[in-house]
Design a binder for these strands. Structure first.
Lengths: 335, 335
DNA sequence: ATGAAAGCGCTAACAC
DNA sequence: GTGTTAGCGCTTTCAT
């Protein structure tokens, strides 16, 4: 690869002139042309590594998340990347496999790579993660860090309004006449299940439905867990008349269990799913689902990070509204 | 961030000694301990950028693909990353959005970042892409480059054995008695549809089924295209008795169209899908699908790339076998 | 085994 | 406006 020196020599100017021209400082017209020509002739491409070393800015941001074979995360990366790319940043992706130790090692790795900022879906409790991140501008996605910890720290959060999402789902079912509802929840070790549970219970409480009428089951955010929980609920003597699955995997599992039991959502049992727009659309009848604004989450996370990098204050928590896609899987009943 | 200088000063040795110790060269025991302690005290993390500049190796590989909101690609990244990470490499992800110009710009960007190698699912015809990649060690995934072009060039290909996959699907249907089969194919502008079409036709020809008995429809690799093609085929007076969807999106679309038409796969119409293991499992009855060994593809691609980086010869084309997951969506008929 | 010093490719003072 | 030069943080001769 050609270096700036060779370009300078071929163009008959100094390296400083080449550098200046390439970075937008005015140079004499004749020199500009000479440099341009030399660059083309040598197919010169600036070495960003050297550039980064000198400017102590790598124009790289790290993205650290639990896994890559999950569309929720990768769609977020997708829009994060779109925004960052436009600003000339590149994206270094690392995976924690939901393992705290691994996560810490990867974070260490990213710091060695001199990333300018970080977008993370931490596995470690976010508040502890803040400590690890230190002074690195960081945006948490799908997790929040209590304001207490973040004060003065350069980090913010972007996520769906999970409380409102679950609240809305509950209302949807309650207004359709359902009082005995099964809820498939994720593990309490994650952050979002707590918000979703709280939102659901809040709506129920408001309508006089206590926990006694509800069938709350919690498990992993996996297809298997969704399948198993649904089967268990269906096997009950006084089984619920409606089901709410609170994440993509649980939704898939629930749909599978219902299909296997020969139950059509919206007939014997009403159903509200989460996130899997595609599954909702190809199901027959179409499913009612709550969908998170993944693209928007990614976009806002990236923009927030760029703000932090540019010195804006952190500490903000951005809750983005979810959307309810109404299919025909919620049936009005009169109890 | 602490530098190697500060570590040296605190440890009371020269930077050379610190560097040597950190890189595995033997140093006096007392010095080793002193360095270790200084590193801990300062929380020193080597600056990989500076390191890369000096060694002119960035320990970074680029991954360039059409999009990130597609599990086929992201699962591949996932296993690529797992392999590379183990060897100390990091992964720079770029997206072409299936746009040749954009792809070239992103490739340029990656080169500026001094990547040591590239894993690509090119949008540009792979043979042209080779020229762009130049001397950069490159592994093509899901695409091949004719041996003629690659001779002497440092690139190889890793992909599924698409011919055999489609051949197998055809046999599966033919042996069940089907002769009038609808095939949902992707766009001829991609590479894989060609192989899949050829494989399917080869099996048919062997069993005396000509193109006249087949219903080949080609379209985009999208859910909508799959849905539309399926509806069209179902609307025919002499509609086929079996359907084969040749990719994930087409499979989803087909399943949706069948559900909407009230057709249960494996009853009125037999069905073989592609890649969507999850959908196959939660469907009732379970679907028969051909699945690509995504994890293996990624793993082998990464290993192949590491080989190329280490100076191995390129030019190889690795075809990995697909797997047939048998559900109950193929029904034996007697015509 | 150790340290002084050169230099990877680039940018930013600084003097002209 | 241009060129000379120092130096980003590191590795690597090359003497010692």
């Amino acid at each position: 690869m050609a270096t700036i020196r060779e370009v300078a020599r071929l163009a008959g100017v100094s390296v400083a002139t080449v550098s200046k021209y390439l970075n937008g400082t005015k140079v004499r017209d004749a020199n500009a042309r000479a440099v341009e020509e030399a660059v083309r002739a040598l197919d010169y491409k600036p070495n960003e590594i050297a550039r980064g070393l000198r400017k102590s800015s790598s124009m790289t941001v790290g993205v650290l998340l639990p896994e890559l074979d999950n569309l929720f995360f990768t769609q977020i990366i997708s829009s994060v990347d779109a925004v960052l790319e436009e600003r000339g940043y590149s994206t270094l992706v690392c995976v924690s496999r939901s393992d705290s130790e691994r996560e810490q090692r990867r974070l260490d790795f990213l710091r060695r790579k001199q990333i300018d900022g970080l977008i993370a879906v931490p596995t470690t409790a976010a508040s502890d993660f803040v400590t690890l991140a230190g002074d690195l501008p960081t945006v948490f996605v799908d997790r929040v860090v209590s304001a207490a910890v973040t004060s003065g720290v350069r980090c913010s959060s972007v996520l769906s309004d999970n409380f409102a999402a679950a609240y809305g789902a509950a209302e949807e079912l309650i207004l359709a006449g359902h009082t005995r509802i099964g809820v498939l929840l994720g593990p309490d070790s994650n952050y979002t299940p707590l918000e979703r549970r709280a939102g659901f219970l809040a709506a129920c409480a408001l309508h006089g439905i206590g926990e006694g009428d509800l069938f709350l089951s919690a498990g992993a955010y996996t297809v298997e867990a969704g399948y198993r929980m649904t089967k268990e609920l269906l096997a009950l003597d006084d089984r619920p008349s409606a089901l709410f699955a609170t994440n993509n995997e649980l939704t898939i599992g629930a749909v599978g269990a219902l299909a296997e039991a020969g139950i059509t959502p919206g007939e014997e049992i009403s159903f509200i799913g989460f996130d899997n727009r595609t599954l909702a659309e190809i199901s027959h009848p179409k499913l009612t689902v709550i969908v998170q604004p993944v693209a928007e989450i990614g976009r806002r996370a990236a923009e927030t990070l760029l703000g932090l990098i540019d010195g804006e204050a952190g500490g903000g928590i951005l809750h983005l509204p979810t959307e309810t896609i109404r299919g025909e899987s919620v049936r009005r009943i009169t109890s």
